[in-house]
Design a protein around this nucleic acid. Sequence first.
RNA 1: GCCGCCAUAGCUCAGUCGGUAGAGCGGCUGAUUUGUAAUCAGCAGGUCGGGAGUUCGAUCCUCUCUGGCGGCUCCA
Length: 640
Amino acid sequence: MGDVGQVEVRLPDGTQRRVPAGTPAGEVLRDWAPPEVAEGYLAALVDGVPVDLSSRIDRDVSLAPLSFADRAGRDILQHSAAHLVAKALVETIPEAKPTHGPPTEDGFYYDFEVRPILPEDIEAVRAGIARSVAAREPFVRREVSRAEAESLFAQNPHKLRYISETPAGATISVYETGSFVDLCRGPHVPDTHWLEGAHVLGFSGLEREGDAAARPLQRIRGVAFPTRPELDRFLKLRTEAEARDHRTIGARQELFLFVDDAPGFPFFLPKGMILVRELEKFVTEHLAKSGYAEVRTPMLFAQSVYETSGHWSHYRENMFLSAEGDRLFGWKPMNCPGSMLIFRSRSRSYRELPLRLAEFAPLHRLEASGTLHGLTRVRELVQDDAHLFVTEDQIEREILVLVDWIREAFTTFRLEWTYELSTRPASFLGDPAVWDKAEATLEKILKDSGVPYRVSPGEGAFYGPKIDIHIRDSLGRPWQTGTIQLDYQLPARFGLEYQGADGQLHMPIVIHRTILGSWERFLGVVIEHCAGRFPPWIAPVQVRVLPIADRHAEAAGGLADELRASGIRVEIAAPEESIAKRVRTAEVDRIPYVLVLGDKEAAEGTVSVRVRGSKESTTRSRAEFLAYALDRIRRREFDP
RNA sequence: GCCGCCAUAGCUCAGUCGGUAGAGCGGCUGAUUUGUAAUCAGCAGGUCGGGAGUUCGAUCCUCUCUGGCGGCUCCA
């Protein structure tokens, strides 16, 4: 140990410094780092624990800076912004009772018990934030006694509850920002000037779980960046992303349709149907290579089937029901019961396993009205669904094959995906020991395959654990697409058996799996991902032929026929408008290839090729273009 | 389903401080036959989401239903 009153600080580069006890962490870091770097430090890590820069060092520690680039630093900025929102709301509506305001994956929110928030309140909150930022108010930490905390927040039952939940002996701290005091563990950025890039995105009411009598909470959501230009960049990206909304593009390109009298039930228009069929072909090719058989099972089953499957007790509120005489039928929300009944329809041998039954059938789910969202959340959908009946030692191989297929499918669309392993929920069927085993199997596979994943405890289906695939839409909203679910329950409930090599009867395990998820949701995300500029292989119209004048009609027709004969989807835009207008329209319609045909081309047997997104055109022989386009389509290239 | 907001022509939107409505794009017709992101002119198209109430009179105010949007919850 050093002199009395000196402490030793270890810094991230391995150097050590001796400083007077009580030196603020921020001061040590400012001395250590170049000024332009230290400027970006918003908090510190002391022995791995996040603290304020003003926090004083009173013992030997390791010290590291936190900036926005660090996950923890980012969270601190979001959380500080949440405080500022609470301050501004309480200034606007003094009786508002703040509850909590955590950072999230994409920003932050703060929940309040307060009358319903109005748009003008949000304007006032934004103004209040701007005032605080301009005033550069410090975040001042104060540690208080339990009694003082209770008296400070005597009017706020939520804060009193948090205080009562704090273990005896634990530090209780509050942060003061101007006149606003909030119960908070911290840490925070040094002052409100750090929040010049904070922005309120919206507000909404919340349903309070398990307490119908309680007043609903109001949530204000926002996001924060360290500087105003970074916020502006984010807002600009967001505006651009709105233009990629699949609902807008779907209407503009006449892909699909919704009508008021069929909420959540999509119509696929001719061009949208081509997208669906191309996806189906893509998936079907994989199924053929991987040993699947396709089946079709009934759309409706009597109640008793769902009682067997467990849907009646676990999923009935999401099912459409139909009465026939005194029997009640349910529209199938999933394909599993049908596949179970096929398996059970005769005796099965181990030689048949793995038995892979695929089914692309419309499913109906009575989703709550407020959750419907274009194609990404609908009430009628078709999944690229299959059920694999396997033995325990076949599980790993089957899932590895699926992981390969996932890689192929998503990279074809240049989509980035993540995995989530969901484990036993509160409401579940079966034996916890069997669950543990299934979860361990899945986790082992994920580990062995080297694919990054996260675990969500308690998020599994009622019949088994699952691996979900997530992708994001143009606004960064995450959507679940594929899912691989291990099921030890349905085979037991349906009494499935096969005769093993040992002559004994055994129960198969079922793997439910869908990879793209549903055509509907997957298309919604793909539309946004490519902003309606579909890869040529899936594009509803692949080629548009533009004859310069009427005298080129015959040549244009011949060219179109030639392309069609090779399976290319082609349209002709007759010379009712200028060539410039038709080129523009083709570009707006996102057609991959535009072929212009005039005197020169007709005479030479060539075409002028304009590839989507390119400002130039090139002249090629017809055969050359055809070979080029067919090759890119066959290889399912992303770009034309 | 819950909280808030919204609903005017096929689409995007303007408008009426209560006296039944306009534009651009798209559509149709005609002229133009065009060389790589918008040729010109004309025409058609709306019981202002449905119902009820207030009013001499409602697209406008009130209530309600339906649908949508942003979240919550849930999920492919």
